[in-house]
């Protein structure tokens, strides 16, 4: 048996693995909403609930 059969079989298996990963991603709903996840990852979630953010400046008063 020639090595080419093994190589092609291996490459096909790899391709099929990717294909299955794609199908699972679609099934998991990853293609349903292509906008929100991109925004979500930009949020910072290190807020401390008890501390009031008093340093915040009022956008209407910052004309120096």
């Amino acid at each position: 048996m020639s090595v080419i059969y093994i190589l092609i079989t291996v490459s096909l298996i790899v391709a099929v693995i990717f294909f299955v990963a794609f199908v699972m991603a679609v099934r998991g709903g990853q293609y349903d909403d292509s906008y929100t996840p991109g925004v979500r990852m930009l949020f910072e979630d290190e807020l401390i609930p008890d501390e009031r953010d008093t340093k915040q400046s009022d956008p209407s008063n910052n004309n120096q």
Binding site: F43, L47, P49, E51, D53, T54, Q56
Partner: peptide
């Protein structure tokens, strides 16, 4: 808190959000 609101409703929302550490809402 030195901020202007158009009505009491808006002020209340601000109070709820900032009181629960969600004032980041206004930073984004």
């Amino acid at each position: 808190e030195d901020k202007e609101f158009c009505c009491n409703g808006c002020k209340t929302v601000y109070e709820i959000l900032s009181g629960n550490g969600l004032s980041g809402y206004y930073d984004l």
